[in-house]
Nucleic acid binder design. Structure first.
Lengths: 330, 330
DNA sequence: ATCCGGAGGGAAATCGTTTTCTCGGGTGAC
DNA sequence: GTCACCCGAGAAAACGATTTCCCTCCGGAT
């Protein structure tokens, strides 16, 4: 692969001049410039990004750390990140933490080694990773889940009040024994949704029955098991709030196996607006999150921080919207 | 951020020695080694990946270029790629071509600039990108879709015969007028599936009705429009083979709007085994592709080629399996 | 005519590693 | 006792760009 000095000598100029032409930073005699451009084109010259980044002491790569690429919420978010990043000439390294703090830490390590320009982080709760990012003063933004400690650029959804609204909706629809299949304790979105559920019940002067709450991983299998436990007994809940759509899949499977229909037998509302939720019968009530925007905004925030590291930290909270459908009609 | 010379001077040795200790390539007196390790740990030293890669003339990043991260088939594939890559210490740059040859080319350009160690490519059909990769002799493997020209490491699915098998299944279930909603002409998987559909009809001595075939993008919206055209008339098909599950979503929407039930009114089979396909009623017949394995194997192939660029090209063909469900029962 | 300023372009330093080169000292063989 | 060899460690080169520094030349002002 040709290097800039090859281009330069072919054009009969010094590497310095070639660099100036190719980067358009400084003015160069038009004739020389043309020769350089021509030489570069003929040789299919492509600057070595590593050398460039090393010298400039900056890269055009950002790392995106999320829990699960197979969750449509995260892919949509990832898509937003990619769109925003690419629009500014940045590439995205995708990192799948599997909600495992250890894996998360390893990925932060990689990002640090590769001198990523910044990190978009949906943290599984590894305080260590956050510490590393802060220590190294590498720009990062927390997305979907806030992080502890010092002020940090953050983009989240008002998930707690959305959970409360969904729970209230279930109450209004006449459901009496409302249960909750929550995500893993310790993950902010999971805790917040559970808190919102409790808020709504408390506001309605209902007992908050601990027996109707189950925690599970953000996976279908765990949610399915949890749903079976809740539903397969006499005193079962007549409605469920589920922490996300991946889990809702498991819940629906459990209900099918138990012969329970959603809406009529068990009211069902879940976070995220996965595309399949309108294909089932009855269609499922969801709390739609603006996942794509989440990624977009987080990335723009990150890029602006890269441009100005001194700027004060910003938190923006996006709105989730309840979309009532058949699964919450008796 | 500390550099290796900082570590070295803290340990009272030369940078060369520090490097030798940290990479374990050469033997160093145990006492010095210990001092270096200690200094590195105390200073939280992290080698600068850019400088290292520049000097070593190799990187530990591979690029993954796919059509659509929001398609579960591709996310599953991406997951396989990531797992295999990460197991070998490589990172993955995610590139979303949107099935656009121009975007694909741009991403190949980025991969080349950043001197990616290799590329896993599910090509939208940009011969130009392939040419660039070949010219630069950068290791790459074609996944899901073969590429034209010289022998290339390739991992694909026997999609044509799988499409034939699915069509035969529809015939055996008694469907008479079988239509096909194919992907964009020019994309190998789309063409192959259509060809397989035709193979099966020909083998059964059926007419191959051009009016029952529609092309659309690999998106729900396009497939929905195509399905409406096919289904909203007297002489409508009584079964459809759909090129993938994303498109099947659109088809199901169209059917719902037209008041058609799958199975009874219109037999339905689609490629990919998206998780929601068992949640609808009736559950949908699918042709399951081993997406995760596809990514895994492709990446292992890529890594082995990086290790040995001279090795002869390999093609491996994985099997897709028909999973008959209610949507193909009358 | 002299001086100043600015612009254009080459030489060389620089980014942070790894690796080659080199040198001194110790060891084993003859 | 001498020579050859090896091993450990520092000095310096190399990776391929960008950027600083500096020199030269030209035009305009005094």
């Amino acid at each position: 692969m040709p290097k800039i000095s090859d281009v330069a000598s072919r054009a009969g100029v010094s590497p310095a001049t070639a660099s100036r032409v190719l980067n358009g930073k400084s003015t160069v005699a038009p004739e020389l410039a043309e020769r350089v451009q021509a030489a570069a084109a003929e040789m299919q010259y492509r600057p070595n990004g590593l050398a460039r980044s090393l010298r400039r002491r900056e890269t055009t790569v950002i790392a995106l750390i999320i829990g699960d690429v197979e969750n449509p919420f995260f892919t949509s978010l990832a898509r937003g990140v990619e769109d925003a990043a690419h629009a500014d000439g940045y590439s995205v390294i995708l990192c799948n933490s599997d909600e495992d703090p250890v894996k998360e830490r390893r990925y932060v390590d990689v990002a640090l080694q590769e001198r990523a320009a910044g990190v978009v982080l949906s943290s599984a709760g590894s305080t260590e990773s956050i510490g590393m990012l802060r220590d190294q003063r590498i720009p990062f933004v927390a997305v979907d889940r806030p992080v502890e400690g010092a002020a940090t650029d953050t983009v989240v959804v008002d998930t707690r009040s959305a959970a409360a609204a969904a729970t209230l909706h279930l109450l209004e629809q006449g459901y009496q024994r409302i249960g909750c299949i929550a995500g893993p304790a310790g993950i902010a979105t999971a805790d917040d949704r559970l808190a919102g559920y409790r808020d709504a019940l408390r506001a309605a002067n209902r007992r908050i029955p601990a027996r109707l709450v189950r925690h599970a991983e953000f996976k279908a299998a765990g949610a399915k098991a949890a749903a079976r436990q809740l539903l397969d007994r006499r005193e079962r809940p007549d409605a469920l709030l589920v922490a996300n759509c991946v889990m809702a899949r498991g819940v629906l499977e459990a209900m099918a196996e138990l012969g329970l229909r959603s809406g009529r037998d068990v009211g069902l509302a879940a976070f995220d607006d996965d595309p399949w939720t309108t294909l089932i019968t009855p269609p499922m009530t969801v709390i739609a999150q603006p996942a794509h925007d989440l990624g977009l905004i987080a990335t723009r925030l990150l890029l602006s921080r890269i441009a100005d590291p001194a700027r004060a930290a910003t938190t923006s909270t996006l709105h989730a919207t309840l979309i009532p459908r058949g699964s919450t009609e008796r």
